[in-house]
Design a protein around this nucleic acid. Structure first.
Length: 205
DNA sequence: AGCACGATTAACT
DNA sequence: GTTAATCGTGCTC
């Protein structure tokens, strides 16, 4: 495959759990100065509605969350822990706040650029975390609200390989330590455990 | 104007 | 397993 079309808006205009699962195996592309940086999406989490206490939109419509209330197919990029940016894709119809957090990709293009930004970490640790992806691909504040379906946008998603269910694990979302049940345990995290150089978080002893 | 906290990461014991 | 780094966000005063 040389190149593929961007995923259309209707891909994102579906139930968030469907979008999160279907994003696995697709290719996240970042155009930077004409160069393609990309990777296969291997981990994603769903954040669904104002009722979901793990979702930023649980506080309602604010300057920060308004992108999630907007139309599907846009980037929601938020800042956290005083130093990290994280990339999400807005899902479902306008007015319904929901998004999918991209937690891991398998680097495919622009490896030298990615390596330089992630040095001195080894390749397996380049993009196996949401803030690692944004650092590797130089995604930040200015990309918040960007339309992934606009033919001109510098961030988009391409059709990739189909990932069979046997290769997908799902479980509770990461990092919701102080979020009350049942939201803390909703199995809304999807991850591929079977790509060539799959990276997963360190297992506890 | 001030405060507590976080959809994380990397380095350390 | 533990912890520091670091600041936007939303809430209270």
């Amino acid at each position: 495959m040389i190149s593929a079309d961007r995923l259309p808006r209707q891909f994102f205009d579906r139930p968030t759990l469907t979008v999160a699962r279907q994003l696995l195996g697709t290719r996240l592309v970042r155009l930077e100065d004409g160069q393609r940086l990309s990777g296969i999406i291997t981990e994603a989490e769903a954040y669904i509605s104002k009722a979901d206490l793990g979702c930023h939109a649980h506080v309602g419509r604010t300057p920060r969350t308004q992108v999630m209330y907007g139309p599907p197919g846009h980037a929601y990029v938020y800042f956290t822990y005083g130093m990290h940016w994280c990339l999400n894709f807005v899902t479902e119809q306008e007015g319904f706040p929901a998004a999918v957090l991209i937690r891991a990709i398998y680097p495919m293009e622009g490896l030298e650029t990615i390596a330089a930004r992630r040095a001195p970490q080894p390749p397996a640790l380049w993009t196996n975390g949401p803030a690692k992806i944004t650092k590797a691909l130089n995604i930040h504040r200015l990309h918040n609200g960007l339309d992934l379906c606009d033919p001109q946008s510098e961030i988009f998603v391409e059709i990739g390989e189909s990932i069979p269910d046997e290769c997908v694990t799902n479980g509770p979302r990461v990092g919701l330590n102080t979020v009350p049940e049942p939201w803390k345990s909703k199995p809304w995290r999807f991850l591929v455990h079977d790509l060539p150089l799959n990276r997963t978080r360190q297992a506890s002893p």
